[in-house]
Amino acid sequence: MITSFIDRLKEKPSGTLFNPWYETDPENDKHPDAPSIRRKQLAHYLQERVGKAKYLMIAEALGYQGGHFTGIAMTSERILLGHQRNKYSVHPNHVFQTISPARTSKVSVAEKGMTEPTATIMWGALTDLGIDPYEVVLWNAVPWHPYNPNKGLLSNRTPLPSEMEAGLRHLKEFITIFENAQLIAVGRKCEQSLSQLGEKHAAVRHPANGGAPKFRRQLLALAKGIGN
């Protein structure tokens, strides 16, 4: 199921969307097999959570500092490479354990790998609250990376309505992989996507743009319900 799901991620709208699992970033990727590394990392991340996931946390779209290079939503290279374990108690084996993590960006882009504020806050909050990272799966309503054509691939932009619409079929399939897990929308656009699919969900503030304190409070409130 996961293999076929990742295969179907090839199907994206035309326009300025980067597909990290099937496209190479010619200026910033370390080597030409970067897409296959990202596919492998996503596959292991998802597979290790099948049958364990209690929470699916859905954010808006993949970002250039996170999934663009790791292949995993809201997860940065710096987390995968173990450079945030001291400050945030986030370890590479919190992400996956059945393979060794690998960077796909050039060292010249970021010496210790790319780092993403959303990823840092998300994974830091999970570890601070003592939530088992294997009971949480991170994903995006728009699975691909929307970038600003005037700024290049190392940029983000707000997804277009048509791109949000195109992501719905992948989001629906993603949800079926993790049956009975609670859906949590991270941000308003994700709420809209889940509502369009008719999926019952909880909602939290997106941690970007000053939203981190409220995000942590809301996640804590949800965490207190674990096991109740």
Rank of each mutant, 00 (worst) to 15 (best):
E60D: 01
E165Y: 05
G63L: 06
P32T: 11
H145I: 02
E191I: 01
A43G: 05
T75G: 03
Y147S: 00
T127A: 03
R103Y: 10
H83G: 09
E116W: 00
K112E: 12
F96Q: 10
M164E: 10
L153Y: 02
K189N: 12
I131A: 06
R217N: 04
V50Y: 11
N228Q: 09
N148C: 13
E27L: 15
V90N: 06
L154W: 00
G15S: 07
L168R: 06
R188M: 01
F178L: 12
M74S: 08
K189W: 01
K224N: 12
G66P: 07
K40P: 05
N209R: 14
L81C: 03
W144P: 12
K52D: 05
K214A: 15
W144I: 14
Q192M: 01
T104V: 08
T158E: 14
S105R: 09
P101D: 10
S193E: 11
A110T: 07
N180A: 07
L138R: 07
Y134L: 05
G152N: 06
V137Y: 04
G63I: 00
Y64I: 00
Q47F: 13
R103E: 08
V109D: 05
K224A: 02
L46T: 08
T24E: 13
P149Y: 01
S195P: 00
E27P: 02
V90K: 12
G113V: 10
H206L: 12
M164K: 11
L62V: 11
G63W: 00
L160P: 14
K224C: 00
P146F: 04
F178R: 14
T70Y: 00
P143I: 06
G225L: 14
G211T: 12
Q84M: 04
D25W: 04
R217I: 00
L126T: 01
I6S: 05
S4H: 11
R85N: 12
F215L: 06
R78M: 15
A212H: 11
L138I: 02
R205T: 15
T115W: 04
Y134E: 11
T158P: 03
L194A: 11
L46C: 10
R216N: 03
F215M: 05
D29Y: 04
Q65P: 00
E11S: 12
W139R: 00
R85P: 01
G225N: 15
N148V: 03
I177C: 14
Y147W: 13
D29T: 01
P26E: 13
R78G: 12
P213N: 10
N28G: 03
S89A: 09
F174N: 10
G71K: 03
G113A: 13
L197I: 07
T104Y: 09
H83S: 07
W139T: 15
V204W: 13
S162R: 13
H94M: 13
A212I: 07
P143Y: 06
W21V: 02
H201C: 11
Y134A: 09
S76P: 05
R38M: 09
V95W: 13
S162E: 15
K151I: 01
A208R: 15
R103F: 05
I6T: 04
E163N: 05
E27K: 15
Q97A: 09
Q218M: 04
A203P: 00
P101M: 06
L194Q: 14
A181I: 14
